[in-house]
Amino acid sequence: MRKETGSYQPYSYFQLMEISLRELLVEKGVVTEDAIAGAMAAMRERGPERGAAMVARAWLDPAYKARMLADGSRAAEELGFEVPGLRLIVVENTSDTHNVIVCTLCSCYPRMLLGLPPEWYKSRPYRSRVVREPRKVLAEFGTKIPPKVQIRVHDSNADMRYMVLPLRPAGTERWSEERLAGLVTRDCLIGVALPQIPKKPKSRKS
């Protein structure tokens, strides 16, 4: 291997392939640079807030929850989220069942709804370990699942995408939809975390 000098790093094989393909597509008029930049900006804009909004609505509205479990994509559209091409299955956590999502073959993820997946979701250790030792992996995320609770691992290995509907934490009665949505993090929607009520900071007054 040729020794590089300075801070210059040569492109990797796949980076080079991506650049070549992109330039070819632009050159041949299939797409424009603006369209690519626009799509990338739109992707960066999407975040797990969309999934969190669906969860909060489901916690407050049993009829919506039933529709969401029957057809996740339609339930997303009902809240005004455009999810073209997404075939979403929502899996519900209960007191007896905990769900966790993975894509062992690549990094399938409901990007239309949750935005870009975190790096660890795409990593080989997560993808290979969570299927065979889910309890250990969840514990590493700080999520301890009692032995009597069934764990369901969902490998999104083909055409469907998955999102977890977490259990609503106790002590959130009378909370507003917006406040409830604030409890639902990206990791809750993947199933490696549970919604946590922020502990009140100790203040001298209370």
Partner: peptide
Amino acid sequence: GGASDVIELE
């Protein structure tokens, strides 16, 4: 892990 643990695939 739990005896009832499952994994689901397409």
